[in-house]
Amino acid sequence: MKSLSTTSTQTLLGYGLAALAAIGFSAKTILVKLAYVQAVDAVTLLALRMAFSVPFFLIVAFQQRGPAARPSLTARDYWVVGVLGLLGYYLSSLLDFTGLQYISAGLERLILFLYPTLVLAMSALWLKKPFGFRELTAVLLSYSGIALVFVGELDGGGDTLWLGAAYVFAGTVSYALYLLGAGQAIARLGAMRFTAYAMLVACAASILQFVLTHPPEALLLPMPVYQLSLAMAIVSTVLPVFMLSAAIRRIGSGHASLVGTIGPVSTLLMAAVFLGEPMTLWQVGGAALVLMGVLSLSVR
């Protein structure tokens, strides 16, 4: 009985950690939108978020070194980690931050949530993975949901709506490419080790871009920008990464992925509470379609 009780507790803990990780990742969108009220640009905001994240990932990377770290990194491993870090954590974040200047938090999160359908399409195209009726239905449901939300926001958005959506979708494509290539690297190096190294690459790229494109005076920002950037680093970057890893150890990646579908819903709720964004029937209906599409893939 004790063993069964312990197992149940660990399972519940796993689901709780997965839910908190999904909410933490989603909170990033809200924090970015709040920071933009202070007249800060995307490059500066991303650099600050990454700079505050560096110490945490340095600690993890240091713990993953030494004789116990197996296998040792080869030249190819360094190259793979570098490219995937730039694709998955630097470029996708930069495009996402840029797009958030033009569109609502709810629409941004729903577009980002299309990444499983993009991975599916890329796998079918390049890896010759099967693409049948279930996959086609999932894609049609997901993109119909985005279209519904998009139409609902057309009146207030205009050209900037198209521009913002294009930036965020490009970031989603970049993240899907990262996921497509990260599987083998994670299997070889381990999730924590690979994530720490890839994040450090992204941090270096983000900070370097700021240094090359902005004068030092650009750091003379209102205190709320620094507070929100620190919150982004801890609440929406470092903690969710560790919580998701802990959740996967307890309940598996499939169940953790299912719990992650609460992300767009939590974003809609937080956007209504903290940003005053209206929760329209267009958004609710679109979110339902997107979730149905992604869930149909996750359940499989």
Score class of each variant (00 low, 15 high):
I111E: 03
S253L: 00
E108F: 01
F169M: 13
A21M: 04
A247C: 15
L258N: 11
E135S: 03
P222S: 10
T117E: 10
Q64F: 01
G145A: 02
A61T: 07
S253I: 00
A204L: 10
L208I: 11
F25D: 13
Y90R: 06
L45V: 01
A22V: 05
Y36W: 08
V80N: 14
V168A: 03
F242T: 07
V81R: 11
S229G: 12
H255C: 05
Q101K: 15
E217W: 00
L86Y: 01
S257A: 08
P130D: 04
R70L: 10
G156K: 14
G24F: 01
S144V: 00
S3Q: 15
K2M: 07
F56D: 03
V225W: 04
L208P: 03
G24M: 03
I30L: 05
V151P: 07
T74P: 06
P215T: 01
A22N: 10
V290H: 08
G82A: 10
A165P: 08
I146H: 02
G190F: 05
V290D: 03
A205C: 12
G24C: 06
G254V: 02
P55I: 02
L31P: 13
L125W: 08
T117F: 03
G286M: 01
V259I: 13
A147C: 06
V265T: 05
L58K: 11
V80Q: 15
P240K: 02
A165L: 04
S53T: 14
I262K: 05
A204N: 02
A68C: 02
P71V: 00
G293K: 09
R49C: 02
L34S: 07
V40K: 02
T98F: 00
L114E: 02
H255A: 12
I186V: 15
V149T: 09
R109T: 09
A202L: 09
Y197Q: 14
L189A: 11
S229E: 12
M270P: 14
A47D: 04
L221D: 05
R249K: 15
Q63R: 14
I234F: 06
L221I: 04
G24P: 10
A202G: 12
L275S: 10
V80F: 03
R193N: 14
Q283T: 01
K33S: 15
E108Q: 04
T98Q: 09
A18Q: 09
E217F: 01
G286D: 04
P130A: 07
G16Y: 05
V83H: 07
G181T: 01
T74W: 00
L12E: 07
G106Q: 09
A185E: 11
G85V: 08
A182S: 15
A47I: 05
